[in-house]
């Protein structure tokens, strides 16, 4: 599903250039559930953003579902994100003026699905998250756990091949974190590839494989069971 070869990425700020990814090779098969761990600043989010086509890389090759992703036009990139990738962020990133249902329906809006139909589908996903009665609440009326479940529903609604989660439990207490992980595991069980960046060992242990990044290189791949 995901295949990267010798990916390099530097951030250039003024005179300085910071070499963040130093030749990453990684294969992730369809349906895998993988965690990425590493010290702060090691380049985990940078890698995940490249995988999600939110950012580009300097050299190397990235194939997503067999398609070479390299310097795409923003239109192509947006369409590809919409069809292939679901995002779950640490800070939820819900749209503040849309209620839970409309937030979930957003990816379908960009596919020009009619409003009635996409809201109906959004309701189904909210029901699966146990949030049907919160459908018409704005994000600022929801708890952190509820917000993250709305975000997960939103990531799922476009039937993506891959879900990328950057510290999805980072802003949650341990009990809610466990609930969110249960959800993500269920999702993975339906065949969707899942990649989670995390700092927490017990979260990583619930994935099948943990990739450790140190200073821009993959230094270790651990199979969990």
């Amino acid at each position: 599903m995901i295949r990267i070869k010798q990916i390099h990425k530097s951030y250039v700020t003024g005179q300085n250039s910071l070499h963040v990814l130093k030749g990453i090779d990684l294969d992730i098969a369809a349906g895998e559930m993988v965690s990425i761990m590493g010290a702060s600043g090691s380049g985990k989010s940078t890698l995940l953003n490249i995988l999600g086509i939110l950012d580009d890389y300097d050299s190397g090759e990235y194939h997503l579902n067999g398609l070479l992703v390299n310097r795409l036009s923003e239109r192509k990139a947006a369409q590809l994100r919409n069809r292939m990738v679901g995002f779950v962020f640490q800070s939820f990133n819900l749209v503040s003026f849309k209620n839970a249902m409309e937030n979930v329906a957003l990816p379908l809006y960009y596919q020009n699905v009619p409003r009635k139909k996409r809201n109906l589908i959004a309701m189904e996903y909210l029901e699966r998250m146990g949030l049907a009665e919160w459908a018409h609440h704005l994000p600022n009326e929801l708890s952190g756990g509820q917000k993250q479940r709305v975000a997960i529903a939103r990531a799922l609604i476009g039937n993506p091949k891959v879900i990328l989660a950057d510290e999805p439990t980072g802003a949650l207490d341990s009990k809610t974190s466990l609930e969110v992980m249960d959800l993500l595991q269920e999702i993975n069980a339906t065949g969707i590839t899942l990649i989670i960046v995390t700092h927490e060992h017990d979260i990583a242990l619930r994935t099948k494989k943990t990739i450790r990044i140190t200073d821009g290189n993959i230094t270790e791949i651990i199979m969990n069971n």
């Binding site: 923003e74 239109r75 947006a78 369409q79 749209v95 957003l106 960009y110």
Partner: peptide, 16 residues
């Protein structure tokens, strides 16, 4: 900026 960033991440093409 951030709100527009979210919309783009979710698949809003530039034209939108």
């Amino acid at each position: 900026t951030k709100e527009i960033g979210i919309q783009r991440a979710l698949g809003a093409v530039p034209r939108v």
